[in-house]
Design a protein around this nucleic acid. Sequence first.
RNA 1: GCGCCCGUAGCUCAGUGGAUAGAGCGCUGCCCUCCGGAGGCAGAAGUCGCAGGUUCGAAUCCUGCCGGGCGCGCCA
Length: 537
Amino acid sequence: MLVSDPVSDLRGAVGEAAAGLRGDGPLDAARLDRPPRPDFGDYSTNAAMLLAPTMGEAPRAIAERLGETLAERLGAAVDRVEIAGPGFLNLFMTDAWYLDSLARMREAGERFGSGEGGKRVQVEFVSANPTGPITVASARHAAYGDSLARMLELAGDTVEREYYVNDAGTQARKFGESIRARARGEEPEEYKGDYVTGLAERIEGAADGDPDELAKRGIELMLEEIERTLQRFRVHMDRFFSERSLYESGAVERALDTIEGVYESEGALWLRTTAAGDDKDRVLRRSTGELAYFAPDIAYHADKLGRGYDRLINVLGPDHHGYVKRLYAAWAALGGDPGAYEIVLMQLVNLFEGGKRAQMSKREGAIVTLDALVDDIGVDAARWYLASRSHDTSIDLDLELARSQSQDNPVYYVQYAHARIASILRKAGEERVAAALATDLRQSDERFHPSARSLVKRLLEFPAEVTEAAERRAPHRMTTYAHEAAQEFSAFYRDCRVVGAAEEGGDEDVRLVICVLAKDVLARSLDLLGVEAPESM
RNA sequence: GCGCCCGUAGCUCAGUGGAUAGAGCGCUGCCCUCCGGAGGCAGAAGUCGCAGGUUCGAAUCCUGCCGGGCGCGCCA
């Protein structure tokens, strides 16, 4: 059963009242906003301004009638309505509405903010070449993809996290050759990192090994390390999908036989990707007989299609930009639903070290790894920082700065607020808190301080915020939300005494419940980001 | 040349049609008889790249231009 929340109910009431006024269907575009200033009320709507063109009346006149309808409809929930500016309708809610909202949040418990999406979603992310350790760029993908997955899970979807392993082809072979070179004490041509030497030492007989075999073994070892690193970063992959396995099972050849739009020209095999908007058709098998890099991807997507997901999200780096259209084309040519497959392009993480750009190429060997970053600033700060920006903007991260400022990172502020609430609840005592949670809040005569209203409104936004962040593939919104919630808790803490509230005429039960709910929302927000919510710091 | 992304405070960035554009860091000045000072309050700081257009209303949508990034192979 879907749990309704007070804000969406309010939004619904506004929409219906507006529709009734127009005598037409619901007004979907009507907004219910938190106004920029307290004297504009608790909530405001632009419905009257939207109705004005079709109704042929002045917005303020419509707002007048809308206000009357709403006041009647909402009864004791609304204290008064005001018309302002070009036709905004500002709603001033009563303490009773706040008490009822708190009670409903408490009753909803864990269901507050959760949805019943029910879709099977696959998120492919990271998928970094297994020829070296996870870098900071991949760490951003990891933070993004995992947080997105967590949000979809909260929305009620079943999510599978998958890592596509490029363990075949030229790069793999060169990796094998590099391992052998190190084993022989030579300088490799390709992968020059120290870790290659380490691998060479761990693989028996590497000095005389076959490069393909060495690559296979080296990739196995690298993947173990990658998985460990991801676990440490609180990212758990449900599946590592091997590109090599697609060759070995014959899936690549089968895919080329079955996909639509294949033709031969100039001795090569092509896929008509222009049919789906690509700039030019793409080669599947070169005239030399070799399969192109693109070919196994066809097979991989065929495999995904066969698994029957409702939706696939593929998180790629900006270097795959020119690859997007052909992947969409391949998906369509395989018979996939174009609306079910989605590619998200992440922008870069530019690393600076003391103002100088750090090198990230695995082949160059100078790598800033995810492990090194975590050693430096910790998992919490790293996940927060890498998730805190929109995926389509690049991040300039000066390691020296991140290191020196780690104590000022906003993540600590949010965690501090959580720990502080925990401390207040400890001070109140378990029994006291349990008693507060058991009271009928609706009977309270608590008069809400503006800071308390502001905080409660923020908590009530949680469901909408999670939905929005998930639907727009924008987990970074959660960092903004969590920080705002923490700030508003701090204001509430400053203005409203919790333990001993009666001394200032307040209701301790109500304030304890606010604390419990605020703590829960902060913890869940942090969890969506893969950040811990400590009881004390 | 073509395509995509970005351009918002000194710096890093939020803000995909609403009211006086925000946060963190940095800067200036205050606040610990008070449930956690890893805190709070106040202040300085902006032609939202530029120019048009759509709209009652534009940082947001459209067009053009300028600046930056990335991508455009029978490479992987």
